[in-house]
Amino acid sequence: MIEKMDRWQLEHKVAQIVQTLLGSKEVSTETTLLGQHGILDSVTAVALIVQLEETFEMSFGDEDLTMDNLSSVGDIVSFLKKITS
């Protein structure tokens, strides 16, 4: 599924997932999701990972659950593109 989507489509879909989890808050590709200034708490972060796995029919390994891969919509999209190329 990811292979058939361009970057914009992936960004839009990931942003939609985050917005749904947050109750429709605006999210850009640069919005900080995780960390000290992130908009997601730990429970919502886990829900995001589960939703990404279900939506994109993939699975995160323990080594994939890093701030570099998950700290923003843009980082998530870059990670998804990397694992499918």
Rank of each mutant, 00 (worst) to 15 (best):
K4S: 15
S85P: 00
L21G: 12
F60Y: 08
V18S: 06
I17G: 05
M58D: 04
K25P: 00
S24T: 10
S28R: 08
T20L: 05
H12Q: 10
E53N: 02
T32C: 12
F79M: 12
K81N: 10
N69S: 11
T20E: 05
K13Q: 14
V46C: 01
T29F: 03
K25N: 07
T20V: 03
L65H: 03
E26Q: 10
L40V: 10
T20K: 03
V14D: 13
D68I: 05
V73N: 08
F56V: 04
E11A: 06
T44W: 00
E54N: 14
L22C: 02
L22I: 05
F79E: 04
A45E: 11
E57M: 01
Q19W: 02
Q19A: 15
F56H: 09
D41R: 07
S85A: 14
T55Q: 14
A45P: 02
F60V: 15
W8A: 11
Q36R: 13
K25A: 14
A15T: 07
D64W: 05
L70E: 10
L34N: 04
S85K: 03
S24V: 06
M5T: 04
K82P: 01
Q36D: 13
I17W: 05
L65N: 01
V50G: 00
Q9D: 06
L52R: 04
T20P: 00
T44V: 15
K82Q: 13
F56W: 10
Q19P: 03
L70Q: 10
